[in-house]
């Protein structure tokens, strides 16, 4: 197949803008997901009553519904009761709602992997709760959590592709637009794949690098 390079050069700026939007939405969504995840996992780890129940209900709802449906509800449903959010805000809120539960589960599995004897030993050394968390639990939990967190980061970046469903001009939206307008399908799809690879490959490589480092530093292996 002969590729139309004039077409590619002409519409490259569209893709660059769309990629910036994809990265921006993903970055904000991941950042807030981490915040939500840390809070939720802390609530569950310390067995804070009532809030803990709310957190587990949230986690079940968030993990068992598709992001696209969450976004449709936020973007088309909520304005009917006066909650009007811009498409980009919806995308970030939706991604946070979805990602928060995934992050929470990864962080919690790390926290729970730290054995009780470690905490008791810290207590017997006279360490307080904060100091135990900072010096004993956190560093060990991190090593267990990081691979899961990295997988979530990649998952969430991939999930941003559905924001085109609420008319945000991300990479998918531009590709759909160009296919509809000009029928240069090959070029459009090749560019789409390339741009996602440009965003995702370095992050995926970095994630496996970190994972290898962690395994190397692992306790007793």
């Amino acid at each position: 197949m002969g590729l139309n390079f004039d077409f590619i050069v002409k519409y490259l700026p569209w893709y660059v803008d769309a990629a910036i939007l994809t990265v921006r939405v993903a970055f904000l969504g991941i950042l807030f997901s981490l915040v939500v995840g840390i809070i939720c996992s802390a609530v569950q780890y310390y067995h804070i009553p009532v809030i803990r129940t709310i957190v587990s209900v949230y986690i079940e709802i968030s993990r068992n519904t598709p992001l696209l449906v969450q976004l449709f509800f936020l973007y088309f449903g909520l304005p009917k009761i006066g909650i009007l959010l811009s498409a980009e805000t919806c995308a970030v809120v939706g991604l946070t709602f979805l990602g928060g539960s995934y992050m929470s589960e990864s962080i919690r599995s790390g926290l729970e992997s730290v054995e009780k004897s470690q905490i008791e030993s810290a207590a017997s050394l006279g360490m307080g709760k904060v100091l135990t968390m900072k010096e004993v639990i956190f560093p060990q939990a991190l090593a267990v959590s990081v691979p899961g967190i990295c997988a979530n980061v990649i998952f969430l970046i991939k999930e941003t592709s559905v924001v085109s469903g609420i008319a945000l001009a991300d990479l998918m939206y531009v590709a759909n637009d160009l296919i509809g307008l000009y029928y240069e399908t090959d070029e459009t799809l090749i560019m789409l794949v390339l741009f996602y690879l440009i965003i995702l490959l370095p992050i995926s490589a970095f994630a496996s690098f970190i994972e290898r480092r962690l395994r190397y530093a692992g306790f007793g292996n």
Binding site: K158, E159, T160, S161, L200
Partner: peptide, 8 residues
Amino acid sequence: IRIMPQLV
């Protein structure tokens, strides 16, 4: 397959 969003 795993690195590409399913929508792509």
